[in-house]
């Protein structure tokens, strides 16, 4: 089914081909094409309401594309049968915007549930693993708290700990830094970089926080609201100064940039 010329591109960890996203007849974004390589920290950026979270929902299979394909390690995720989909999804870890912790479970139970259901670890090992995951996000000692008893930022961090529960191959984070103080946000960026380096996970982050974008991303896509398609892809630091698209330069420089691109000297 794949055309010959698709083969080299499908080496990428995530490959998106001609993806069009729509709610009914309302097209959100059309003709998205990008690759995410293994161990990339890939940032999906763009203005509010441009479809960043919608793209994430497509990537993790919560919404079906109107057109196009999403491939993981060359395997077609969009066309996969429900049973095949589960084997794809088992490799994902997802943190939702507001944490989305199960409110009737404690933090420890939230993280332990996927481990208990999907592995055969012993209770003591699971407890150690849960404590470690919580320690990574700076929540040691909060094992027995319910999500309603801790702050929004802590909920978010616990959400990241839960997303990492099964050492996922690909970690999806929806607005991880939003609602955190600058230091926590910085710590989180540090965490993301270290996770990539030590576990070799590929990480996809939806964010519009410039400091985070420049700190963590080595690859990115900019979704352009005006044209309803991708504005640019590439390393954000390079895009800021050298992108052909003025909207991208404006976004990445908080609107303070001159309107013409500076040429690349190299």
């Amino acid at each position: 089914m794949q055309k010959k010329n698709d083969t080299p591109q499908s080496q990428a960890k995530i490959a998106v081909r001609d993806l069009t996203m729509a709610y009914g007849h309302l097209v959100v974004m059309r003709d998205l094409n990008f690759d995410v390589a293994e161990k990339d920290i890939f940032v999906i950026m763009g203005g509010s309401g441009c479809g960043k979270s919608t793209l994430l929902r497509h990537l993790i299979g919560l919404q079906e594309p109107a057109k196009g394909h999403i491939l993981y390690d060359g395997g077609d995720f969009t066309a996969a049968s429900p049973a095949q989909r589960i084997s794809f999804i088992r490799r994902f870890g997802v943190m939702y915007q507001s944490g989305a912790l199960w409110s009737s479970l404690t933090l420890a139970e939230n993280i332990a549930m996927p481990i208990e259901e999907h592995t055969e670890m012993k209770p003591q090992e699971i407890r150690d693993l849960v404590s470690y995951k919580l320690a990574l996000v700076g929540l040691s000692g909060y094992e027995d708290y319910y999500p309603a008893q801790i702050s929004g930022g802590m909920n978010k961090r616990a959400g990241i700990a839960r997303a990492m529960a099964l050492d996922p191959d690909i970690l999806f984070l929806d607005e991880p830094g939003a609602g955190l103080d600058p230091l926590s946000s910085r710590r989180l960026d540090d965490l993301i970089l270290r996770l990539r380096d030590s576990l070799g996970s590929t990480i996809v982050v939806v964010t519009h926080e410039l400091a985070s974008i420049f700190a963590i991303a080595n690859h990115s896509i900019f979704l352009d609201t005006a044209t309803r398609t991708q504005g640019a892809t590439g390393n954000p630091s390079i895009l800021r100064d050298h992108s052909e698209n003025p909207a991208v330069r404006l976004f990445l420089s908080r609107g303070e940039e001159s309107t013409s691109p500076s040429p690349i000297h190299s």
């Binding site: 470690y132 320690a135 990574l136 270290r194």
Partner: peptide, 11 residues
């Protein structure tokens, strides 16, 4: 990273 924040004994 895991040891950066001491355990919240109070918690």
């Amino acid at each position: 990273l895991a040891l950066a924040v001491p355990e919240e004994i109070e918690a």
